[in-house]
Structure formats: structure tokens, C-alpha cells
Design a protein around this nucleic acid. Structure first.
Lengths: 196, 196
DNA sequence: TTTCTTTTGTGACTTTTGTCAAAAGCAGCA
DNA sequence: TGCTGCTTTTGACAAAAGTCACAAAAGAAA
């Protein structure tokens, strides 16, 4: 687990921020000072059930997943996240309660990691940073809502077709059993849907 | 549909805000000036599928629901909301795209209504208001995530038991068929679960 | 009260998806 | 090449929940 601080790693993060709200060099410096760049191998566990999540990650490169263990102890994926996305265990990070979910990398990943105390410090020091935080939270909330609604409204087959249409790249990156659990169906059901 | 502006109606909203971040009298005045109090009858449609949502509501009193129509045209509830809660069609309000869902009151309701342009105006004028907005968005996002996870992780029976335990008041207020669709099961299945 | 309407409950049957077990396919490597 | 381990597919069967039809119960209205 290597840690480095080259500002270059922050290029994509700041570019994302700038599409939402202009941020001062002072704030950029402070973000760099209060966070760290992390390189972790494939299959690294970033958070386990029972732990309290105290960090939010920005994925510079790589892929990660969020999953929980069901009653029989089987893994069920709730999200796959890619470069330029924020990675967080929403429930635990926002409530401070122990997590019921796991975060794990699927590939080697380069991440920016920001601890909650540091993030709170930045939010308190730079009020305009809350504009950004609000907008980003709204965006992820909206995505979450959409996903939850699709899980409700669509049949297994429709969910599969929509995912294939919208995220074909996902199928190159993760196994079908991961995709099945993301869709909320068994491996076998997905296999049957695919071979119609 | 009666509109009034008595600041008294804002008492609970401001009390909620103050638990998160102190707000100036100037901001309070501006919130009052830029919003309106709305009294609507039971079963009033506040948003329909296809419309673009342009308002967020705070429920002073009453109950509302958010639902969508499934492929067979049957209503399926995604949320029930009560006094002191925010009422919003997340997808449409945050993206500006037409809604796929409906918002409807279940009782006579007294609401504070804030239009999106006005809200944006306030967010731009008072940076500290974004702190509040961020925190509230985080909270609702977290609740949404929890609900989505329960829909995934639990069986129909477990979802019913958890709802009964956590929101017994809901059962006094809405019909069992509304609750069934909220739980993602048919009316008949809920009836069978209840009579074990 | 009586009537009308809406909501809830029950039985019989169907559909969807899950489970278990075994076979097939495929990738890395000795 | 042929192991070895992992993922995917297939078949037979089971379980969960949905659908349809109708009856019973509860509420609203006259």
C-alpha cells in the first residue's frame, strides 16, 4: 500500500469539481494537504461489515464494488464503481454507525482517500465547498434512487437488458456471478436469461 | 388551495434547520420571502408522471406518498412522508427531467413550497445554506440507501415485520394495499403474511 | 338502519426465480 | 499437453410470490 502526494493525481478530481463550482487554489492546496493518494492491489478490502467507515475515496483508476453478505453468507453486490467516481459506504459514512456492507477493489486501484474529520474540517473552513458537496450528494442520491426504482419496477430480464445497454463495459470487467448478484438474481437465472 | 405567509408556519422548518446549522435572521426572512405556505386537500396531486418537478415541499402537517405506475398501470408506492419531512421527487427535481413518479397527499396537508429557482437563488446567495442543504441531502440519501438495501436483503415477511416495528403509526394512516405496494408485494401476499 | 362502496381475506392455480447437483468451458501453468 | 481451479451452463425440482375470482368485513352515505 503505497502513499504518494503528487498533485497530478488530483487533476481529474479537480476537473470534476470545476464542472460544478470554481474552487480556489487555496482550497485545492488544502484538499491535497488533507487527503492522500493510495495504491492498492486487486481484491483489497477497504471496509468490512462491522467497521465504522471513516473515509471517502475518489477512484483515479481501477474498479471497486460494494457488497453485503446475505443471511446464508452469500455476497450480494449493490454497486460497481469506476474511475472518476466517488466510493463510499453511504450508511456508515453519514451516520457514523458500523457498516453492514463491504468495499473491495476489483482491480488494482489508485485512489484519493479523504478522512471524515478532514472532510468536515474542509466543509467548515470553506463554505463554498458545501456547494460542491451538496451537488455531488444530490447526484449520487439521484443515481441511487434510479437504481432502487429499477429494482422495483423491472423484471430480472429487463434489469439485465437495461444494464447491458447502459454499461456494456461492466461485462468486460466483472464476472457474471457478480453481475447476477448486482441485478438481484441468482447466477443460474442470469445464465438462463442470457441464453434466452 | 389557500396560500398564506404567517411566519409561524416556518417554526418547525427553522427548528429542523437549527439542529444542523445556525441560520441568520436575514436568511430566514429570505426563505420566507421566497417560499409559500400551501394548504391542500386529501388526494391532491402535487406532481404527475411526465411533469418536470420544480418544487420541494416541507410538510408542516399531513401525510403524502410518492408512487409510480407499473407496466399494468397499477400504483406502487415508494415512500410515505409525514410532518417535518421534506417531500420531493428526487430524480426529476435534481435532473430537471420529466418525472416517472407521482406525488399525492393522503390527508389534508399544510406544506411549505419552495421553487427550484428560488432555492438555487438562496444557495447562491447564502453559501452557509449549502451546509444545511448538504447535510439534509446526506440524510435523505442515507435513508434511501437503507430502504433500497432492505428491499434487497429481506424477504417480504421480514420487510413487513421491520416496517411494523419501526413505523406502527403508518398502519393507522394508510391502507394495507398501499403498504403492500410499498413493501413490493401484492395485496394478497401481505394479507397472508399478516394472518401468518 | 339500510344500502353502497371500498378494503381485506381466502382458495386454487400459475409464474418467476431459487436451489442443488452435475457437466461443460476456459485460463493459467507445470 | 494435460492438470487444476474457477466460472458458466443445464436439468430437475422446490419455494416464494403473483394472479384471478369471489366472499367477508368494514366504512361511508343516505
Amino acid at each position: 500500500m503505497k502513499t504518494s502526494f503528487y498533485p497530478d493525481n488530483y487533476h481529474r478530481l479537480f476537473a470534476l469539481f470545476e464542472t460544478i463550482y470554481p474552487i480556489s487554489d487555496k482550497l485545492k492546496d488544502d484538499i491535497i494537504k488533507n487527503s492522500g493518494v493510495l495504491e492498492v492491489a486487486k481484491k483489497t478490502r477497504l471496509l468490512s461489515s462491522g467497521d465504522k467507515s471513516n473515509a471517502i475515496y475518489f477512484i483515479i483508476s481501477g474498479t471497486a464494488r460494494i457488497y453485503y453478505l446475505d443471511k446464508e453468507g452469500k455476497e450480494s453486490n449493490t454497486w460497481f464503481l469506476f474511475e472518476n467516481e466517488l466510493l463510499i459506504s453511504v450508511y456508515s459514512f453519514y451516520t457514523g454507525n458500523p457498516s453492514f456492507e463491504y468495499i473491495e477493489t476489483l482491480d488494482d486501484c489508485k485512489l484519493i482517500s479523504l478522512k471524515r474529520e478532514r472532510l468536515d474540517y474542509l466543509y467548515n473552513k470553506y463554505m463554498e465547498f458545501n456547494f460542491l458537496g451538496r451537488k455531488l450528494t444530490e447526484y449520487y442520491y439521484m443515481r441511487n434512487e434510479l437504481q432502487a426504482n429499477e429494482l422495483r419496477m423491472l423484471s430480472a430480464k429487463e434489469r439485465y437488458e437495461r444494464l447491458l445497454e447502459r454499461s456494456p463495459a461492466l461485462f468486460q470487467r466483472v464476472s457474471l456471478s457478480h453481475i447476477a448478484s448486482y441485478l438481484g438474481i441468482s447466477r443460474e437465472t442470469l445464465s438462463r436469461i442470457r441464453n434466452h
